[in-house]
């Protein structure tokens, strides 16, 4: 029993954090929101060079093998920096393609591991189908290649561009665990979003002065921030445990528990971040608003807490 991240996981996370700090993700997010995927693509390529997208790809397709603990560690950092693009969707697409195998896997997986191809999966909307090189959908348990249908539907999170899809060619039977890996990636992303929101709120409370003192001296503010920490602290082990149960019968149950808790904790952090910052965070031009909007969008993406609680009760 050693239920904490290993030193090498922590070093990996730290290196991604530094890489993304240098990448100016807020600028990439705003460009992405305006339909310019260039800066976001550059961030993805640097993440691929760091090995992030190989973590959901089997070794036979030039990946690192599916490494769920490393994957949630990395995706947490992507959420912490609000990296735009179909992050969880690319993870799920890789797992889906690996499970159907054949030409589709051989064609796409090496390119996805290398960061050359971005993939998305409709759940039910296909996130960033305009940017993705491969669009997939699952209908009646069958994995299909798909085409985006119509214009992008605007999301609360401006960096999330959602599309309807039309199924085209069938690729084979979709496995539930591949979709669950995408759900788990979304939960890890949410944990990163929540963590960043707490970090910036604590920093703000230390520096913003009202009534002649930092607002972080006021108990009303302290208690909000403490509540956000409590929720995040108790969601994290659920995400880690779900990563460890990948490949076992407990995986769907643990993924649902993790996604429900991560959604709620991340959303709590967003509400508190907005309240602690006050009006400034209610503006689109202030960076934390990008994370606040993402927290609510991800709350219902890949299944809301209620969806996952309903599923959990059928699995217990």
């Amino acid at each position: 029993m050693k239920f904490v991240l290993d030193g090498e996981h922590l070093l990996f996370a730290e290196s991604l954090h530094k890489l993304l700090d240098r990448s100016d993700t807020p600028t990439a997010i705003r460009a992405w929101s305006a339909g310019d995927h260039g800066p976001g693509r550059r961030v993805w390529r640097s993440l691929a060079e760091a090995g992030v997208f190989a973590l959901a790809v089997p070794e036979e397709h030039d990946g690192a093998g599916v490494l769920p603990v490393e994957l949630v560690t990395a995706v947490h950092e992507l959420g912490r920096h609000a990296v735009p693009g179909p992050v969880a969707e690319t993870v799920a697409a890789a797992a889906l393609l690996a499970s159907v195998g054949g030409d589709a896997a051989a064609t796409w997986l090496p390119r996805m591991a290398a960061g050359e191809a971005m993939a998305t999966v409709a759940r039910p909307y296909a996130l960033d189908a305009d940017a993705a090189d491969l669009v997939l959908t699952v209908e009646n348990g069958e994995l299909h290649q798909a085409e985006p249908a119509g214009e992008a539907r605007p999301s609360l999170d401006p960096a999330r561009r959602l599309f309807g899809v039309t199924a085209a060619r069938s690729l084979g039977k979709a496995t539930e665990s591949a979709l669950d890996l995408g759900t788990l990636a979304c939960a890890a992303q949410q944990m990163g979003v929540g963590r960043r929101l707490l970090e910036v709120s604590v920093d703000y409370a230390k520096t913003r002065h009202q009534f002649g003192r930092p607002i972080g001296e006021f108990q009303a503010v302290k208690h909000h921030l403490a509540n956000a920490l409590v929720e995040l602290e108790f969601a994290r082990p659920l995400v880690h445990a779900a990563a460890l149960s990948y490949g076992t019968d407990d995986f769907p149950r643990d993924v649902s528990a993790a996604k429900a808790a991560a959604s709620e904790a991340s959303y709590t952090a967003a509400r508190i971040a907005l309240q602690v910052h006050g009006a400034i965070a209610y503006t689109a031009e202030y960076d934390p608003s990008l994370w606040i909007r993402k927290a609510r969008a991800l709350y219902s993406a890949w299944g809301s807490p209620s969806d996952h609680k309903a599923r959990l009760m059928t699995l217990l």
Binding site: V202, K206, R213, E217, L229
Partner: peptide, 8 residues
């Protein structure tokens, strides 16, 4: 844990 100022 969060390092906020103690204050009054």
């Amino acid at each position: 844990v969060l390092g906020l100022p103690r204050g009054s």
